[in-house]
Design a binder for these strands. Structure first.
Length: 594
RNA sequence: CGGGGCGUAGCGCAGACCGGUUAGCGCACCUGCUUUGGGAGCAGGGGGUCGGAGGUUCAAAUCCUCUCGCCCCGACCA
């Protein structure tokens, strides 16, 4: 596919009048490389917590990312439209999200007193739009998308532009007659996503994900492995299975133990309420203990029991319970219910108003040390099924590094961190049913439309590109998303240097986007800035070079330097770019550069 | 929302404990001259409601109260 984005008809951009100011020093409040570089190179400026200005050079990058997204969305039949950020609360009340979503959804009343909110995504508006259009199976399928501001009042914005309160997102919505059709289309989106990320210089891992408050069935996150990432995912070292830790299944291996089972025995364990305390007291590993964690799930007490070597995964627990709100229970509430915090055993299941959940990892051993249900006592050699009721077990544990893979025979799990670049959901009928988006089938029966939705964050993609493409001196933009293709540096203020740089810049700008550094700055400053800004090709014009009618071209990514006659500069840039395209794994159509 | 920290020039900071010159330094910015292949030199200069409000005092950047904002860790995260 041709990267026409690099082609340009625009004039040379003159740095001296361009709204761009780099900084000499690293910003103190930035932690991750992309944040530091975006600020240092003058791409972003914070306006409020999680709210940023994007300067012209940054917006050029965003425009290129958006254009690649557009091309790939259009390729799979997407129809671009524009939906509003300002939404009436009534639409969100219809789907139930008005109450289901927390304070991230900004709610307010307009001047007439009508309840409004600022859209964090557009399922409501798109479903509302579609129900005015869809009536027959003949109308399906289709896909709509837009690239629009999203507002989410995040509790804690962080990582520069990684997690913010206002951002641009490409969100796409597909509409189908049934799950089979959705499933088939989902593959198209999946492939389009892979193409988009490859083209912008990223290589995220598609991982199975929890659907969260979005609802629906299948969901994948595209996670770019990075230390700066906020998501943790599990990956099998053999079969490649990848799953967000919020969803990753845990298979515990049963340990072979002697068939002789000692009788349960109460042991005095003064003030020992943690697994660590008990480990040192009993002198055995954490997997010998039955750990109890008490929660308040939508107002009822839930106590989850798990093998002491594992941690409860609250997302999985929440899903198992179908709970909206899950918090750690306060001890007073437990005491009131007749529970002894710190010494809880599954025998409390008989108490009224208490739900007990047993994690599957409990099955891995035949006997445990568990709570004694009275202060300062534990029970040793407690056998599941004998000393407490072994009801159905559930999978609510967090997978650990080194655990066996749930998919293949002999793989083990590795935990990695990643940046969520995109998320795809097979929504199903959650929105169509609640909002009455139905169609008449060939049999003349009304059925809810089956939907999918697919997001990509634009600023986060930009930041991720920097995370993946930078060095000690600055950003190294891939040619597909670079704000400019060539940066021309005249060294010195000599009239002939200025004139030659101008000629070179004009010649190059016939085909490439060019930033001409016409500032009255020393050579060192210009070199440092060109490296910081990360423009793929640097063209130097100096007195020495002019004497021989030459310009020097340097490739930012590789450091390769060539000196060529001034007239050959455009042709040489072209071949350098083809070299870069190959290195970066992107295609350039031979018709480009023209 | 819990814990910790910070608000003084565009950016980074000092001054504050112990109230008292005209609030200072570096970078950036302006003028002039020199300089121009790796963040230049000399000289001169502009820019401040000291986050905001109230209070104490003869006097507040400095002490007290309230408030707003921002950062970090955690919780949260369609």
């Amino acid at each position: 596919m041709p990267e026409v984005l690099l082609s340009t008809q625009e004039p040379v951009i003159r740095y001296s009048h361009y709204l761009l100011r780099t900084r000499r020093e690293d910003p103190t409040d930035a932690e991750i490389p992309s944040h530091k570089l975006l600020v240092k190179a003058g791409f972003i400026r914070q306006v409020a917590a999680g709210v940023f200005d994007f300067t012209p050079i940054a917006f050029r990058v965003m425009t290129r990312i958006m254009e690649i997204i557009r091309q790939e969305m259009n390729r799979i039949g997407g129809q671009e439209l524009l939906m509003p950020v300002l939404n009436p609360a009534s639409l969100w009340i219809e789907t139930g999200r008005y109450n289901a979503v927390g304070a991230e959804l900004i709610r307010f009343a307009d001047r007439r007193g009508t309840d409004m909110c600022l859209a964090m995504t557009n399922e409501e508006t798109v479903t509302d739009l579609a129900r005015g259009y869809v009536s027959s199976w003949r109308d399906l399928p289709f896909m709509l998308y837009h690239i629009q501001t999203k507002i989410r009042d995040e509790a804690r914005p962080r990582g520069g532009v990684m997690r913010v309160r206002e951002f641009l997102m490409k969100d796409a919505y597909s509409f189908h007659r049934d799950f089979t059709d959705l499933g088939a289309y989902y593959v198209n989106v999946y492939n389009a996503y892979r193409r988009i990320f490859k083209r912008i210089g990223l290589s995220p891992v598609p991982v199975e994900a929890d659907t969260g408050a979005m609802g629906g069935s299948a969901s994948h996150e595209f996670l770019q492995p990075s230390q700066s990432g906020e998501d943790t995912f599990a990956r099998c070292n053999r079969c490649g299975m990848s799953s967000n830790i919020e969803k990753a299944e845990v298979v515990s291996t049963a340990q072979a133990e002697g068939s002789r089972q000692a009788a349960a025995e109460e042991v005095h364990t003064p003030n020992m309420t943690t697994i660590d305390d008990l480990m040192s007291f009993f002198g055995v590993g954490p997997d010998r203990f039955l750990k109890a964690v008490a929660y308040d799930a939508d107002g009822t007490i839930v106590v989850a029991f798990i093998n002491g070597a594992y941690e409860i995964n609250e997302t999985k627990l929440k899903n198992a319970l179908g709970a909206m709100e899950l918090t750690v229970a306060d001890s007073r509430k437990l005491t009131d219910a007749g529970i002894v915090p710190g010494f809880i055993s599954p025998r409390i299941a008989k108490l009224s108003g208490v739900t007990v959940l047993l994690d599957r990892t409990i099955l891995s051993r035949q006997a445990y040390v568990m709570g004694g249900d009275r202060i300062d006592y534990h029970v040793k050699s407690a056998v599941p099924g004998r000393d407490f009721t072994l009801s159905d077990t559930v999978d609510i544990a967090s997978v650990r590094e080194g655990d066996p893979c749930p998919r293949c025979a002999d793989g083990t799990i590795v935990l990695l961190r990643g940046i969520e670049l995109g998320h795809t959901f097979q929504l199903g009928t959650k929105y169509s049913e609640s909002m009455g988006l139905t169609y008449l089938s060939e049999e003349g029966k009304a059925a809810p439309v089956v939907m999918g939705c697919y997001g990509i964050g634009v600023e986060r993609a930009m930041a991720s590109i920097i995370e993946a493409h930078h060095d000690e001196t600055g950003i190294v933009w891939p040619i597909t998303t670079a704000p400019f293709t060539v940066m021309v540096l005249p060294l010195g203020a000599d009239a002939e240097v200025v004139a030659a740089a101008d000629t070179t810049a004009r010649a190059l700008s016939q085909t490439y986007s060019v930033l001409l550094d016409d500032r009255q700055e020393s050579a060192g400053v210009k070199f440092a800035d060109s490296e910081l800004l990360g423009i793929p090709i640097r063209a130097v014009v100096s007195k020495k070079l002019i004497a021989k009618g030459e310009v020097e071209l340097k490739v930012r990514r590789t450091g390769e330097v060539v000196v060529v006659p001034q007239k050959e500069a455009p042709e040489t840039v072209r071949s350098l770019l083809f070299g870069l395209a190959e290195k970066e794994g992107v295609m350039i159509d031979d018709s480009w550069p023209a």
